[in-house]
Amino acid sequence: MSATGVLFLAISAASLLVAVWLVVRILRDRPVHDALLYALGVLEAGLVLQLVWGVVQVVGAHGDLNVAAYLGYLVGALVILPIGFLWAAAEQNRSGTAVLLVATIAVPVLELRLHDLWVTR
């Protein structure tokens, strides 16, 4: 598997792990705690890395890649967690946690789109 594929897979898996963790917090009716915030931070660091890596790819040889769509999904994946975090912060209860859950489920979907765009270029 290519380095790009490994990155897509690692970010998707990490995001789904955080999603499961969020589900547990929601079911137990416990607020988001520091450990989860650190996990979200690590995930976001991975998404920053992915954006840098993606820009390097786009600048280099990229075949028939749909560059506008690819960059769009990269930026979307980069901003969805911070926006979700800000939107969730106003309500520190199950609703706020559920917003973060939606964001962490959306990330693997974006990864899948990025993967499809990259392999069909």
Partner: peptide, 20 residues
């Protein structure tokens, strides 16, 4: 607010996705 906060976020994702 409440469930509506989650709903707004889902709508927001679709707003950005469909428009972009």
């Amino acid at each position: 607010t409440g469930f509506g906060r989650v709903l707004v976020f889902v709508y927001g994702i679709f707003a950005v996705a469909a428009t972009a």
